[in-house]
Amino acid sequence: MVEVKPNHLIKVKRNQVFAFTMLSLAAALTVLILLAIVIYVMSQGLSVISMEFLLDSPKSMGAEGGIYPAIVGTIYLVGLVILIAAPIGVGTAIYLNEYMPDGRFKSVLRFATELLAAIPSIVHGMFGFLFFVIALGDYTGGWSILSGALTGVVMILPIIIRASEEALRSVSNNLKEGSLALGTTRWYTIKKIVLPLAIPGITTSIILAIGRVIGETAAFLLTLGGSLLLATTVFDGARTLALHLYLVAMETGNTEMAFGTGAVLIVLILIINLAATGLFKLLVRRFSA
């Protein structure tokens, strides 16, 4: 037998204790940073939030008054983006996963999707500005909710495509073959077996995409127009909560009002994260019960 020196063993043990302590500290630090941000923003912002804050129009560039138009703008924008991006994204995922044979063209599509996801949102914004605001301005109303939404669609498509593909892939091949072997068409199999089983994953991806739209600012800075007025149609300019926060903080310097908006945003993101996990569990249970 090889003799192991007791000193060596102690050293090895001490190394492990040290390493594990450092790793745990890294994790603790991450959680602490999150808590610091959330608690600080909430503590600064909650005192500003009131019914008037939520339901009034902003005054003096947002340094006073409420954030109602920004709430409405956010809802319009998110609704429109999801309405367009969800069907296209899920449709793309179905085509890639269920219909398209492996090959060069498929790799090209996948690579394009990945690159689209990697493009910084400010570049999406530049494109949206040039294409939707300027070139198609006669149809989109220039700086408008529609221009912002179309830009947002391009931005979140890859997220929905990727997550939906993952959800579709998780459906067992056994079940698909079982259905096809009964003499059903592919589309029937997708409708009746694949999609119902993939719905929890797809729903989660769409909710997370909503979160992404709510949090995004750079792309909308260049396309929404930042109007303080209440939007009535999608051809009106608008601002989202995140954009409002930025403009208030940078242009008026009133950080108190900015924190109020920030607190609303954090609550929204919290709700969305909880909804994503909650809904996933609920949908999984419903279909397997």
Binding site: L34, G215, F259, G262, L265, T277
Partner: peptide, 23 residues
């Protein structure tokens, strides 16, 4: 830890920016 990281990912960059700008 896992949901905390997920939440951190979801916090809008302007909120983190605002935190940085002040703190």
């Amino acid at each position: 830890v896992k949901p905390a990281i997920q939440l951190l990912e979801g916090i809008p960059s302007v909120v983190i920016g605002l935190f940085g700008m002040v703190v």
